[in-house]
Computed example of a mutant assay.
Amino acid sequence: MQTALMQEQHHDSAGAARTYRRVLTLDPRNKVAWYNLGVLAQQQGKAADAREAYDKALEIDPKYASALFNEALLWKSRDSDRAVDLLERAIAATPRAATAHLQLGHIFAERDRDSDAEDEFRRAVAADPSLHSEVPESFQDAVSPTPTSN
């Protein structure tokens, strides 16, 4: 796996993918290898391949928050209900997952569920105050980071 990570750092995604596939021939239940194949496919714009790899990681570990989050991003524009389900599962696995709260807030805002959106944006900013700038302007005053946010 270390070899694949080095290959990714050197922008050799094809080599990294080959290494992850070799890992999977030895250990087909390696959720990290499946997840990383999904990341590589997502970076290459191969959404179907990415979803398939994330699904394999999630078959192994249904609470794998990173795979849940990344797959949710793939579904966000196509099937926001599916994205909401995946984000809620990611948050259940990692309650302070700031970016998952942020993405869920965006979906709720698009659906005019302002109260739910505000709650999610508040949770995101409480977990990571640097995300405040990514909150839509109409919600920013309501979710301003406090001095006690961390």
Score class of each variant (00 low, 15 high):
residue 11 H to S: 11
residue 64 Y to V: 04
residue 102 L to H: 06
residue 112 D to Y: 01
residue 93 A to L: 03
residue 20 Y to C: 15
residue 102 L to N: 07
residue 54 Y to T: 10
residue 12 D to F: 08
residue 30 N to E: 08
residue 10 H to D: 10
residue 26 L to I: 01
residue 26 L to R: 12
residue 57 A to L: 10
residue 121 F to S: 08
residue 87 L to M: 03
residue 12 D to G: 09
residue 59 E to C: 08
residue 10 H to F: 11
residue 22 R to P: 13
residue 32 V to T: 13
residue 145 P to E: 01
residue 33 A to C: 09
residue 41 A to Q: 07
residue 65 A to L: 01
residue 39 V to S: 14
residue 78 R to D: 12
residue 44 Q to V: 08
residue 18 R to H: 14
residue 53 A to G: 13
residue 71 E to N: 14
residue 116 D to G: 01
residue 49 D to Q: 13
residue 70 N to G: 08
residue 29 R to G: 05
residue 77 S to N: 12
residue 144 S to C: 07
residue 4 A to H: 04
residue 71 E to P: 13
residue 23 V to T: 07
residue 65 A to H: 05
residue 60 I to V: 12
residue 67 A to W: 02
residue 97 A to V: 00
residue 64 Y to A: 08
residue 5 L to P: 01
residue 141 D to E: 07
residue 70 N to P: 15
residue 74 L to P: 10
residue 11 H to F: 09
residue 87 L to T: 06
residue 143 V to L: 11
residue 44 Q to T: 04
residue 54 Y to L: 08
residue 54 Y to Q: 12
residue 46 K to Y: 11
residue 60 I to A: 07
residue 85 D to Q: 08
residue 119 D to K: 12
residue 16 A to L: 11
residue 24 L to R: 05
residue 132 H to P: 08
residue 62 P to C: 03
residue 83 A to G: 11
residue 134 E to P: 02
residue 89 R to T: 01
residue 30 N to Y: 05
residue 1 M to E: 13
residue 22 R to K: 14
residue 68 L to W: 00
residue 77 S to H: 12
residue 123 R to Y: 01
residue 21 R to Y: 01
residue 59 E to F: 02
residue 116 D to H: 01
residue 17 A to E: 14
residue 114 D to E: 10
residue 124 A to F: 07
residue 112 D to G: 01
residue 104 L to F: 02
